[in-house]
Design a binder for these strands. Structure first.
Lengths: 199, 199
DNA sequence: GTCTATAGGCCGATAGAC
DNA sequence: GTCTATCGGCCTATAGAC
C-alpha cells in the first residue's frame, strides 16, 4: 500500500484527491493541494483528469459505491429475515464508517450543493423499489411509511460520525473514547431498531 | 419583513449572507453573490464587516444561537421530568428545523472544515455539565453513557433534514410529502426515544 | 453611507521543453 | 509521462469620488 512504489500515478492522484476533497469539500479544495499530496506536479493532474470537476466526479463515484455497494446485497436478499438484515446492515455500516468517518458528511453536503450531478449515481431502484427490506418493513408495520424505520436506522448509525468533529473539538471525547462509543452502538443500534420495529 | 424598506443595510447584508453561506458553505460563497442578493454594492459589504471571514463569523454566531438557544432552557430546567424534556425538545427542534432545513448540515460541515473557530461558540457547559437532562438520563439508565440517548434523539430529529436533498432529488419525496413525513416524526420520535430510555 | 474602478493575489488550466 | 513557466480569469479587498 505504499503510495510511492507500486501504485500508478493516476491512482496516486485519485487517492490524494479523495482525501482532500473529503476533508475540504469541492470548493474548498485547490488542485495544487491535491498535486502536492500526491507528490506530483499540477500539470499532471490535468493531464490525467482534464479538470478539477472531472476528478471530483471520479472521486464521488468511488464514494457512492463505498456507501451503497455492500448494502445492496443485504437489503435485496430474499432469504434473510428483517431482523437478520438489521444485524447485517448495522455491522457492515459501522465497519465502513469506522474506516471512513467523514464519508457521510462529505456526501450529504456535496449533494446539497449540487444535487443533480451526484444523485444520478445513487442506485435508487435497488435500494428502494427492488429492495426486499422495504417490503418486509411494510409487512411488519403496515400503518407507517417504511422510510421512518430506514431513516431511524441510518440516522442512528451515521449521525455519530457526522457529529464526531464537534465531540472531538469540544473535548467531550477523544479518538479512543469515540471508538469505544461507536463500538457500543454497533450492538445497541440493532437492539433499538428491532424494538422500534416490533413495537 | 420587507428587506428593502425598514431593514438597515447592515442587516440586509447579514440576512443575505446567512442565506448564501447556508446554501453554498464558506468556500463556495462569493462576496459578490451576497452583495447582489442584498441589493447593495460589494464595497459596502467590506465597509460593514471588514472581510468575508468576519461576516461569516457573525452569521455562524446567529446560527449557533438558533440551534441551541431555545434548547438550553429546556434541558437545564430542574422542574420538568425527563419525559417532559423529551417532548418539549422534540417539538422545539422540529419547529426550528422546519423553518431552517439546511441549518444542521451547514453547521456540521463547516465545523468539520475549521473546527476551532466555531466550536468555541457552543455553550458546552450549559448543554452538558449544568444540564439537568444528563443527570436525569444517568439516573434512569446508569449502565450506559448518556450520550447514546442524546445522540439518538438528535439523530432522529436532525438527520431527516440533512437527507432532504437526497430524498427530493431522487424524486422519492416532494416538499409536501417531506413536510408530512416530518410532521409524523414530530409525534413519533418522542415515543421511540421514551421507549429506548425506558427499556 | 454608498458608489465605481481597480489593485493584487490566487487558482485552474495549458503551452512547450525534455 | 512528467516537468517548469505562465496565461487568463476570478475573487477579495481597498482607494477615492460623491
Amino acid at each position: 500500500m505504499d503510495k510511492d512504489t507500486d501504485v500508478s500515478t493516476e491512482e496516486k492522484i485519485l487517492i490524494s484527491a479523495s482525501k482532500i476533497f473529503t476533508e475540504k469539500g469541492f470548493s474548498g479544495t485547490r488542485t495544487r493541494d491535491i498535486a502536492e499530496e500526491a507528490g506530483i506536479n499540477l500539470a499532471l493532474l490535468n493531464y490525467y483528469f482534464r479538470s478539477k470537476e472531472k476528478l471530483f466526479e471520479q472521486v464521488m463515484k468511488v464514494k457512492i459505491v463505498l456507501l451503497f455497494g455492500k448494502i445492496i446485497p443485504i437489503v435485496t436478499n430474499e432469504k434473510t429475515t428483517l431482523e437478520e438484515k438489521i444485524d447485517l446492515a448495522s455491522e457492515k455500516y459501522f465497519e465502513i464508517l469506522s474506516k471512513n468517518p467523514n464519508l457521510p458528511l462529505f456526501v450529504l453536503s456535496e449533494i446539497q450543493k449540487k444535487p443533480s450531478n451526484i444523485t444520478s449515481l445513487i442506485p435508487v431502484d435497488k435500494l428502494l423499489k427492488t429492495s426486499v427490506l422495504m417490503r418486509q418493513i411494510q409487512e411488519k408495520k403496515p400503518g407507517l411509511h417504511p422510510f421512518h424505520f430506514i431513516i431511524n436506522f441510518l440516522s442512528m448509525t451515521v449521525f455519530p460520525f457526522a457529529g464526531k468533529p464537534i465531540l472531538k473539538n469540544l473535548s467531550i471525547m477523544n479518538d479512543e473514547e469515540f471508538q469505544q462509543f461507536v463500538e457500543e452502538r454497533k450492538t445497541l443500534v440493532p437492539i433499538w431498531i428491532k424494538m422500534i420495529v416490533n413495537s
